[in-house]
Design a protein around this nucleic acid. Structure first.
Ligand SMILES: NC(=O)c1ccc[n+]([C@@H]2O[C@H](COP(=O)([O-])OP(=O)(O)OC[C@H]3O[C@@H](n4cnc5c(N)ncnc54)[C@H](O)[C@@H]3O)[C@@H](O)[C@H]2O)c1
Ligand SMILES: NC(=O)c1ccc[n+]([C@@H]2O[C@H](COP(=O)([O-])OP(=O)(O)OC[C@H]3O[C@@H](n4cnc5c(N)ncnc54)[C@H](O)[C@@H]3O)[C@@H](O)[C@H]2O)c1
Lengths: 210, 210
DNA sequence: ACGATTTTGTTCTCACGTTCACAAGCTCCT
DNA sequence: AGGAGCTTGTGAACGTGAGAACAAAATCGT
C-alpha cells in the first residue's frame, strides 16, 4: 500500500513528541486520512492494536518499517548531479528514512570528482561496477529528459530493479522493474487546473452568497 | 483529470519531433497509458479528434492547455531557498510549461538579496505584499517540515489558494485551498516495499523455473 | 460515387478502493 | 468481580475508475 510510508512518518513524528500510544483517530489525523481507511490498512498487516487502548507507537512503527522493508538501509545511486541532483545529494532525509546514497554519477567530466554532500561524483563509466559491488537495487534519475531512457536502460542492465525518475519522460522498462516518476510541472499544472475551476465558479457564488 | 498534463507533455514532445497528427494509440504509448483511457479522457473535453484520422497535435495541445488553464503564465512564489529551493529556482522547465516564478522567499537574513536563477531572494516579510501585488495563486513550500504549516498559513492568509508542499508534513488548510505534496522519501519507500516483495518471491520461482 | 478500412466516441461490465456501521474485546472504575 | 465506556477489526454497501467491445464517422482507393 502506498499509504504505509505516510503512516510511518506520522508515527515517527508522534514518537519524537514522546507519545507512546495513539488511537486510530489520532494517527489518522496526523497522517491526513480517514480513520476507517487507516484501520483497514493496518489490519492488513495483522492485529497490532489493542481494543479500547489503541496502538503502541514504537511497536507499530517497527512493524510498518518491517513491512515496507526499510529496517536496514538500502543502497541508492543518483545519476545526473545537476541542480536537482545536488539538492538530493545534500538531503539528509533519505539517510534517516532507510536509505543510503552510495554513489553520485554524472557524465560531465568537469563534474567528476567534485564532492557533494560528502560523496565524490563518479563518471558514469563506473555505473555498472558500483551497482554490482554495492548491490544497488534503487536508482534515481535526475538527468535531462533526453538522457533518461538511456540511463534507465544502463541501470536496469546493471541490475537495478527500482527507479525513481525526475526527468519529464516516460520510461519503458522490462517486466519486474518498477518505475515511479516525480514531475513537478505536472503537479503545478494539476494545481493550475483547480485554480481555473475556482476562478470560474467562485465569482458567481461569491457575488450571491458568501 | 490528473492525466491531462501527461498528455500535454506527450503532445509537446510529438510536436517537437514534427509530427502533425497522431492516433489515440500513438499518443497513449507516448503518455504511457491505455488507449481506451486516453480516448475517454479526451472525449470528456469534447470531440477534438477525427475518426479514421486521429488527433491534430497542435490543436489538441492547445485545447488541453486551455482546459488545464496554462495558456498564459501563472505567477508562482517559492518559499524556502535551501538546497531544494535553489534547484527549483534554477529550473527552466516551469517557465516553458505555463508558470512564472515571481519571487523567492527565505527567512534567513544571510540568504536575502542572494541572486538565484536571475531573481533576488526576498525576506519573508515581503510575502504578503508580493502575493497581493502579483496576484499569486500558487505557492511552493520548500522549507523544513517544522516551518511548513506556519508558512502555509501565511500564504493562505495572503491569498494563495494552491500549494505545492515538499516538506514531509501534513498541512491543514481551509476549504477551497488545494494542497499537493511531493515527498521523495515516500516514493523511495514505496519502491523499497516492492523491492522486498521481489526479493521474497523471485528466489523461489527463480530456483524452480526461470 | 460507393464500399473497405481505419480510428474515434461511447456504452457496458467489472473490479477495486472507500466509507459506513457494528460486533468483538480490552481496560478501568466501582 | 462485574459492568460501563472506548477502541479495534471487519463485513457489507456504495461510488468511482479502468478496460474491453462495439457502433458511428471520415478518408482513401477503385
Ligand atoms: N531542477 C529542478 O528543480 C527540476 C524540477 C523538475 C524536474 N527536473 C528535472 O530533473 C532533471 C534534472 O534537472 P536539473 O535541473 O538538475 O538539470 P541539470 O541540467 O542541472 O542537470 C543534469 C545533469 O545530468 C547530467 N547528465 C546528462 N546526461 C547524463 C548521462 N547520460 N549520464 C549521467 N549524467 C548525465 C549533466 O551532466 C548534468 O549535470 C531534468 O530532467 C529536469 O527536467 C528538475
Ligand atoms: N533537498 C532535497 O533534495 C529534499 C528532498 C526531499 C524533501 N526535501 C524537503 O524539502 C524541504 C527543504 O529541503 P532543503 O534540503 O532545501 O532544506 P534546507 O535546510 O537546505 O533549506 C530550507 C530553507 O528554508 C528556509 N526557511 C526556514 N524556515 C523558513 C520560514 N519560516 N520561512 C521562509 N524560509 C524558511 C531556510 O532558511 C533554508 O534556506 C525540507 O522539508 C526537506 O525535508 C528536500
Amino acid at each position: 500500500m502506498a499509504r504505509l510510508p505516510v503512516y510511518l512518518r506520522a508515527l515517527v513524528a508522534l514518537a519524537e513528541r514522546g507519545i507512546a500510544t495513539c488511537s486510530s483517530e489520532e494517527l489518522a489525523a496526523a497522517a491526513g486520512v480517514n480513520s476507517s481507511k487507516l484501520r483497514k490498512d493496518l489490519s492488513y498487516l495483522g492485529s497490532y492494536g489493542t481494543r479500547g487502548v489503541g496502538y503502541d507507537v514504537e511497536y507499530l512503527r517497527y512493524q510498518i518499517a518491517r513491512e515496507i522493508g526499510v529496517t536496514e538501509d538500502l543502497p541508492v545511486v543518483i545519476v545526473g548531479i545537476g541542480n536537482l541532483g545536488h539538492a538530493l545529494a545534500n538531503y539528509s532525509g533519505f539517510t534517516t528514512r532507510g536509505f543510503r546514497i552510495v554513489a553520485l554519477l554524472d557524465s560531465d567530466p568537469d563534474r567528476v570528482d567534485e564532492e557533494v554532500g560528502g560523496l565524490a561524483i563518479r563518471g558514469h563509466d563506473d555505473l555498472e561496477r558500483i551497482v554490482r559491488e554495492e548491490n544497488v537495487a534503487i536508482g534515481i534519475i535526475a538527468t535531462p529528459a533526453a538522457a533518461a531512457q538511456a540511463v534507465c536502460d544502463r541501470l536496469v542492465a546493471a541490475g537495478v530493479t527500482s527507479i525513481l525518475n525526475f526527468a519529464p519522460a516516460v520510461l519503458s522498462v522490462p517486466p519486474g522493474v518498477d518505475v515511479r516518476k516525480v514531475d513537478l510541472s505536472i503537479e503545478l499544472q494539476i494545481l493550475a487546473y483547480h485554480e481555473q475551476r475556482k476562478a470560474l465558479v467562485q465569482p458567481i457564488e461569491g457575488g450571491v452568497t458568501a
